[in-house]
Amino acid sequence: MIGLTGGIGSGKSVVARAFQVLGVPLVDTDEIAHRLSQPGQAGAACVAQLFGSDYLTPDGAIDRPRLRQAIFSDPQAKASLESAFHPLIRQTALADLADLPTTTPYCLLAVPLLFETGAYANTITRALVVDVPEALQISRVMQRSQLSEAEVRAIMAGQMSRSERLARADDVITNDGDLAQLADKVKVLHKKYLQAPESETDSA
């Protein structure tokens, strides 16, 4: 069970897809959060209970932009949301993992806040961090999400520092090149995960 994580804009999703191309099963907590945010789902009900129905769209899904704005400006609101929503995500993730074929050599569990929450420490075997230089990270997020540098830095400030994340990693993929280079790095680690002892640590 490989826990996949990295800061915003690091390229976690691209790395996850590259592993999937190689046939590795993926359970993605971002996808689960999106699933739980849909009309009639537990996440949407949770947000309505905590913040009111004004934070749902007309069809009953979570109004993600409005909710994001609310929790960034109110640390207490963010803490309340996380304490209620994260257990729902974890419960669903564990159920999805349990449904994977038992013949699978290994699988990925993608969790953006893997180290911050600590909720999956007893679930994963190794932690794989996707790393990127800070300047490149900021420029990628600004281009992708149309955010200002200050907004990107504010998001980064709410995540674990790059140095601490790297210190906790068992394996690291540095995503500072093109897609072909990244795919090659994924292939190297894929081979290691299939063949190497769990005690061996590698970087790409």
Rank of each mutant, 00 (worst) to 15 (best):
residue 7 G to T: 08
residue 8 I to V: 14
residue 8 I to L: 13
residue 10 S to H: 08
residue 12 K to I: 11
residue 12 K to Q: 12
residue 13 S to G: 15
residue 13 S to H: 14
residue 14 V to G: 02
residue 14 V to I: 07
residue 15 V to K: 02
residue 18 A to L: 15
residue 18 A to W: 03
residue 19 F to A: 02
residue 19 F to T: 02
residue 19 F to S: 08
residue 21 V to S: 00
residue 21 V to R: 08
residue 21 V to C: 00
residue 23 G to N: 03
residue 23 G to D: 08
residue 23 G to S: 01
residue 24 V to T: 11
residue 24 V to K: 08
residue 24 V to G: 08
residue 25 P to T: 03
residue 26 L to R: 07
residue 27 V to W: 08
residue 28 D to K: 12
residue 28 D to H: 15
residue 28 D to I: 08
residue 29 T to V: 11
residue 30 D to V: 10
residue 30 D to K: 07
residue 30 D to I: 11
residue 31 E to T: 08
residue 31 E to L: 13
residue 31 E to M: 12
residue 32 I to P: 04
residue 32 I to Y: 05
residue 33 A to L: 07
residue 34 H to Q: 15
residue 34 H to R: 15
residue 34 H to V: 03
residue 36 L to A: 12
residue 36 L to M: 06
residue 38 Q to I: 02
residue 39 P to Y: 13
residue 39 P to E: 15
residue 39 P to A: 13
residue 40 G to D: 13
residue 41 Q to K: 09
residue 41 Q to I: 01
residue 41 Q to L: 06
residue 42 A to H: 02
residue 43 G to R: 07
residue 44 A to Y: 02
residue 44 A to N: 10
residue 45 A to H: 04
residue 46 C to K: 03
residue 47 V to L: 01
residue 48 A to N: 04
residue 48 A to R: 03
residue 48 A to H: 04
residue 49 Q to Y: 00
residue 50 L to W: 02
residue 50 L to V: 09
residue 50 L to E: 04
residue 50 L to P: 02
residue 51 F to W: 04
residue 52 G to I: 07
residue 52 G to M: 12
residue 52 G to C: 14
residue 53 S to E: 15
residue 53 S to R: 10
residue 53 S to H: 09
residue 54 D to A: 15
residue 58 P to K: 14
residue 58 P to I: 14
residue 59 D to K: 08
residue 59 D to W: 05
residue 62 I to A: 01
residue 62 I to N: 01
residue 62 I to G: 06
residue 62 I to K: 04
residue 63 D to G: 06
residue 63 D to T: 01
residue 65 P to I: 02
residue 66 R to I: 03
residue 67 L to P: 01
residue 68 R to P: 00
residue 70 A to P: 00
residue 70 A to D: 00
residue 71 I to H: 00
residue 72 F to G: 05
residue 72 F to I: 02
residue 73 S to A: 14
residue 73 S to P: 01
residue 74 D to T: 08
residue 75 P to W: 10
residue 75 P to F: 12
residue 76 Q to V: 10
residue 77 A to K: 15
residue 78 K to R: 15
residue 78 K to Y: 04
residue 78 K to Q: 11
residue 78 K to A: 14
residue 79 A to I: 06
residue 79 A to N: 12
residue 79 A to M: 09
residue 80 S to H: 06
residue 81 L to I: 05
residue 83 S to V: 05
residue 85 F to N: 04
residue 86 H to M: 12
residue 86 H to L: 13
residue 87 P to S: 14
residue 87 P to G: 13
residue 88 L to I: 11
residue 89 I to E: 11
residue 89 I to F: 09
residue 89 I to T: 10
residue 89 I to W: 05
residue 89 I to S: 12
residue 90 R to H: 00
residue 92 T to D: 14
residue 92 T to K: 15
residue 92 T to P: 02
residue 92 T to Q: 15
residue 93 A to N: 07
residue 93 A to W: 09
residue 94 L to P: 02
residue 94 L to H: 01
residue 94 L to Y: 00
